[in-house]
Nucleic acid binder design. Structure first.
Lengths: 194, 194
DNA sequence: CATAAAATGATATACTGTGTATCATATTTG
DNA sequence: CAAATATGATACACAGTATATCATTTTATG
């Protein structure tokens, strides 16, 4: 994910091997650190030390820690969103939900780091931002529930249930988890009956 | 809330008038700051400046910012939890949910500051901590949903919907909001039918 | 292969914020 | 009034961020 274009630098200039190595080293250094501690208390020094890269070099590529996290997560978030959207266009939401859970489970090492550390809040915000963009046009819930609240609820419930899943000691299998996600995060939005 | 026992200091020693004034000044200084910006980017210097209190004096009472926030919010969180619990012991959850929303609306100035700033995460954690303590004994959901996940979901959904409510420009009235909260945060846990 | 361009490492520096220590002053308590 | 103590002001050590500089290494190019 994101081997290229970390810092497009305006004009399309290629990334030398050296830059690529530095780039990859920083990305690969963050992941294990996210498994160890919360994102907020990871220092740039730790990242650069683990990456085997000079401290100042970090700021030549990223303006701050958050940019590195975004670079690491952006593509994965987009993927997850792409798998989330079909849920709201199908009569039977079960299949889509199960596909979503299967995807997360397949990439659970990455998602565990992204969701169970202190990075979760940042991740959720970015996810929410993208989701709200496509919500107005694509998603239509019943009038009793404002669309923006519906999106917020779904994303929040999804992130919460998934992070519970990924940090659980004896996690339910994909099918069972999909059922839970469906009932907690999806169905409530589509059950308008009073 | 919490005029007394901010720092029990082991042996029960009374709090002089001077201490009380300092104590109250700090608590009352945090609230307006929370309405202005996220908790993380509020500095101790700002708090003490607004409280009209020396910088070092802050650390004589609280070990850090978080302790002050906790002191400010602890009682309110307990109150909210007390109003939340009945929801899970009644057949008709509507009445309890409505009482909860009415309470939050009545204290909306405080809760808006607590939930819509960067303090929300800390608040939610504390709320969750207390809720999990009483969950095992009091709350019983259907077997398909692990109790700890049920509690996490409810608290998360509750905090999310309430903070949406409090930061909304034209917020729904208490009755309508109670209906939304009921459907999004409460019912999903109690609708076991497949 | 030689040379210019570019990225890096190492280091110094400015800055912000935290938390502690000290001491003179003001206030409370007995 | 006198002792105890809370406060204000200040200095300080410390950690982390972000920038700047320059010598060195690597890469690109003729």
């Amino acid at each position: 994910m994101t081997q290229t274009d970390a810092k497009p630098a305006a004009s399309g200039r290629r990334e030398s091997r050296k830059m690529s190595r530095t780039h990859a080293a920083l990305l690969e250094a963050l992941l294990p650190l996210l498994e160890e501690k919360a994102f907020e208390q990871i220092t740039v020094r730790e990242i650069t030390a683990r990456a085997g890269v000079g401290y100042a070099t970090f700021f030549r590529r990223y303006p701050d820690k958050e940019a590195l996290l975004h670079d690491l997560a952006a593509q994965e978030i987009q993927n997850l969103l792409t798998m989330t959207l079909p849920i709201f266009h199908t009569a039977d939401t079960t299949a889509s939900t199960e596909a979503l859970c299967a995807y997360v489970w397949k990439h659970r090492k990455l998602w565990r780091a992204l969701l169970t550390g202190g990075a979760a809040a940042t991740l959720k915000e970015e996810y929410l931002r993208l989701a709200l963009l496509v919500a107005e046009e694509q998603m239509d819930t019943d009038a009793w529930l404002p669309v923006d609240l519906a999106v917020r609820f779904c994303v929040t419930a999804l992130v919460e249930t998934l992070s519970w899943w990924l940090k659980h000691d004896a996690p339910p299998d994909v099918h069972v988890m999909a059922g839970i996600v469906n009932r907690l995060a999806v169905q409530p939005v589509f059950l308008p009956a009073d």
